[in-house]
């Protein structure tokens, strides 16, 4: 599956996902609290070093994440140059650069499954309001499965419409697609229920068993 993770065996790769996310969050808070050029520039050099030397990431892993931010950074620096001066501009740009590179390093060195596990752990306090953490993993897994499925259905409907002479995508082409995939999701949900995915104490497992015994062999 498409992912920004790049396998490796460096210390950065092997560090626990929770720790890496904690450091990232701490860095975010610290860089906004301390707006001094030497601190911000130091942080940028440090995270760049962690990515390039520590984790031995190819340059493309970092530049591909920086490319979309580029225009923002130029505009930001231009604004500061005109209004508050080049020093403030350099601090603002370097701070964002440091954070974006740090986040890109964490993403490139941490497995999707490890990050999902951290999300489940972070969500465990939500138990109080009725969210079951284990189901978050289930929903994310379903989403990853649905992405290629929806893309495939969309391509098929577009072909069908093109065969009937439609040239451009119009809002109404989306309607048959949505109805199809909603029906599919309903089926998936019921199939999961029938297999006992709904682990809440209810009559559901018994009903699923009754359906199975009633079916012709």
């Amino acid at each position: 599956m498409l992912s920004l993770y790049l396998p490796g065996t460096s210390p950065v790769h092997r560090a626990p996902a929770g720790l890496k996310l904690g450091v990232l969050a701490g860095l975010g808070i610290a860089l906004f609290a301390v707006s001094r050029l030497e601190v911000v520039a130091g942080a940028f050099v440090l995270v760049l070093g962690a990515g390039v030397l520590g984790a031995r990431l190819p340059r493309r892993a970092l530049t591909s994440q920086l490319r979309p931010v580029w225009i923002w950074l130029v505009a930001l620096f231009g604004f500061h140059l005109l209004v508050t001066g080049p020093l403030d501009g350099a601090v603002a740009v370097l701070r964002l650069l440091a954070l974006v590179v740090a986040a890109a390093v964490v993403t490139a060195t941490t497995r999707v499954t490890a990050l999902v596990a951290v999300i489940e752990r972070l969500a465990s306090p939500l138990r109080i309001v009725g969210v079951r953490p284990a189901r978050i993993g289930l929903v994310i897994a379903m989403t990853l499965r649905f992405i290629p499925l929806v893309a495939d259905r969309a391509a098929r409907i577009r072909e069908a419409q093109a065969a009937r002479g439609a040239e451009r995508i119009r809002p109404f082409m989306v309607v048959p697609l949505l109805v199809q995939v909603l029906r599919m999701a309903t089926t998936v949900g019921e199939a999961l229920d029938a297999r006992g995915a709904d682990d809440a104490p209810s009559s559901r497992p018994r009903r699923a068993a009754a359906v199975r015994s009633g079916a012709p062999a």
Partner: peptide, 22 residues
């Protein structure tokens, strides 16, 4: 969450934690 765990599914092929601090 899917973006955060590193799938490049934001428009322009962006993804990962970097987009949450831009």
């Amino acid at each position: 969450a899917v973006v955060a765990v590193g799938l490049p599914v934001l428009s322009g092929g962006r993804g990962g934690l970097a987009v949450f601090v831009g």
